[in-house]
Design a protein around this nucleic acid. Structure first.
Length: 490
RNA sequence: CGGGGUGUAGCGUAGCCCGGUAUCGCGUCUGCUUUGGGAGCAGAAGGUCGUAGGUUCAAAUCCUGCCACCCCGACCA
């Protein structure tokens, strides 16, 4: 049979790749490292977008759009930023093609651009060049913008959703009069991301700051949320950067204060991407397929009718449609799968693969008893419930599922944070169990780098509100004031 | 970019060593029977073997170049 599947425990990567394909989320495109997001996958992404967008607006932001192409000279202005991205930029050098003697399409050598254009790997450069023209006085501040866009980073090795050459994201770029205000914005957006991840994706995250080595190129401080996937690897799910005055200085963006002084503007930027799709998939799914939290599922409920004769079919459909209507009246999204080309068993399996949180099966037996069969995707539990009052019952059950998915992921995450005090133990836990390792670190980039060389583990973050605790660096034995989180990461 | 591997129908594959225009499964299409956990039977369509060239009477098979993909490394907010 075609549905022999790779088990999660056998080969996590292959399981993930097959799942993305089988659940109809995305596939590799004909373009190097790029992906096609298919309708079902995109529907989930749209749900994420809607919710995030709402949260951005609630915190005072507006959407805008800036160009895809960035003149090379803009890009060079913030040195660290340019350096950090230089190795993975696609460059536009010509603006025309032509047909040559052999009737082949070639790049017209006469159409060479005087200045090359960079396809944005991130938009700080073009946006700060624009902000320069918008900001003169303290009255022009703050600027609180977000853009939904695609960016391109020419990655050597790609994986669907987790790292593709082109990806979709949102990037917020704000400008402020004071450092304090910018820092508050940075932290606020980190909170927005954390809340989104936990409440909607059902993925618990650890909030923290990056070490200097892992910091965004051009940032003064990078805040992040880190999630843990089911194979014990960490995933950076979102970042919020305090950019200080780096970009304002690079692009010469100054404003006049109330007191009449000229000062550089303070900046933040923050983003999450289609990588969140990867997080969603890896955090909850099982051997049967995707497990979607109700808050993000394109369909929260699927109704599968069961019948033999046409007569039965008509009765069942009428009852099913009535249930659908009642559920929709309470703002639940329902798919009625009345395809006559597949049998119920096939549909059960298919919707499980696609992660629909709740399935309602209804057949002649139910019509007679005034019941339906309810099947939960997350626990696989089935129960027979009365049609009478089913809307409220299902509505509550969906909330319960949302909570259960989060709780399960959180238990897993918490069980996989290991406190470690010796180097032997560090290597052993990393090798055998994975997960986060909470250990002392002497605070130097050298040690961090050495640990990375030796084990492939990196410092994911220094957790916010970290308890201070005197200790010794797990590698060097040098004094340390707090534990940091290490993990192998995607 | 270095090391290894792969490329045959929509998907997964056999054949390659030892040249003779291609195997099987899934899927697709038609018909009948089925429908409460991925249906059964019968029949049919679909490829010219990544690409360019070479050797040969004859190339999926041998040789060379190129391309793509996968794994390992490097790289990766």
């Amino acid at each position: 049979m075609a549905f022999e599947k790779i088990k999660r425990s056998e080969n996590y990567s292959e399981w993930y790749n097959n799942l993305v394909k089988d659940a109809d989320l995305a596939e590799h495109a004909a373009v190097k490292g790029c992906m096609v997001i298919k309708p079902y996958g995109y529907a989930i992404w749209e749900k994420m977008q809607q919710q995030l967008d709402k949260m951005f607006k609630e915190t005072g932001h507006s959407n805008a759009y800036f160009p895809l192409l960035i003149p090379k000279s803009f890009f060079e202005k913030e040195e660290k930023n340019a350096e950090g991205f230089a190795k993975e930029c696609a460059v536009v050098t010509h603006y025309r093609l032509k047909v040559d003697e052999n009737r082949k399409i070639i790049v017209d050598p006469d159409a060479k651009l005087e200045e090359e254009l960079i396809i944005r790997p991130t938009s700080e450069a073009i946006i700060w060049n624009t902000y320069k023209g918008w900001i003169q006085s303290y009255r022009d501040l703050p600027i609180l913008l977000n853009q939904w866009a695609n960016v391109m980073r020419w990655e050597m090795r790609t994986r669907l959703f987790l790292r593709t050459s082109e990806f979709l994201w949102q990037e917020g770029h704000t400008a402020h009069a004071t450092a304090d205000e910018a820092l508050i914005e940075t932290k606020q957006m980190l909170e927005v991301y954390a809340e989104f991840s936990e409440t909607f994706l059902g993925v618990p995250v650890i909030k923290g700051v990056k070490t200097e080595n892992e910091r965004f190129a051009g940032a003064v401080e990078t805040y992040c949320i880190e999630g843990l996937m089911q194979d014990g690897k960490a995933l950076q799910m979102g970042t919020s950067h305090f950019l200080g005055q780096n970009f304002a200085k690079a692009f010469d963006v100054k404003f006049q204060t109330k007191e009449g002084k000229l000062e550089h503007v303070w900046a933040t930027s923050w983003g999450v991407s289609t990588r969140l799709m990867g997080a969603l998939i890896m955090a909850h799914s099982d051997d049967e397929g995707l497990v979607l939290p109700p808050n993000l599922a394109p369909f929260q409920i699927v109704i599968v009718p069961i019948y033999r004769s046409d007569e039965e079919r008509m009765k069942v459909e009428a009852a099913a449609l009535q249930i659908k209507k009642n559920l929709e009246a309470l703002n639940m999204s329902v798919k009625f799968d009345n395809r006559d080309t597949h049998k119920p068993g096939y549909k059960f399996a298919e919707w499980e693969l696609k992660g629909v949180p709740l399935r309602i099966g209804i057949g002649p037996r139910d019509i007679e008893n005034g019941t339906v069969e309810l099947a939960r995707r997350d626990t696989k539990e089935k129960q027979v419930v009365s049609i009478d009052g089913i809307e409220v019952f299902v509505k509550n059950l969906l909330s319960e599922i949302q909570a259960a998915i989060y709780t399960k992921a959180k238990s897993f995450r918490d069980a996989n944070i290991h406190k470690v005090d010796t180097w032997d133990e560090f290597q052993k836990i990393l090798e055998e169990k994975g997960g986060f390792i909470s250990a002392h670190w002497d605070g130097t980039g050298d040690t961090e780098e050495k640990i990375k060389q030796l084990t492939k583990a990196t410092i994911r973050c220094i957790p916010l509100n970290n308890e201070l605790e005197a200790g010794k660096c797990v590698l060097t034995g040098n004094p340390s004031t707090q534990r940091v989180l290490f993990a192998k990461a995607y």
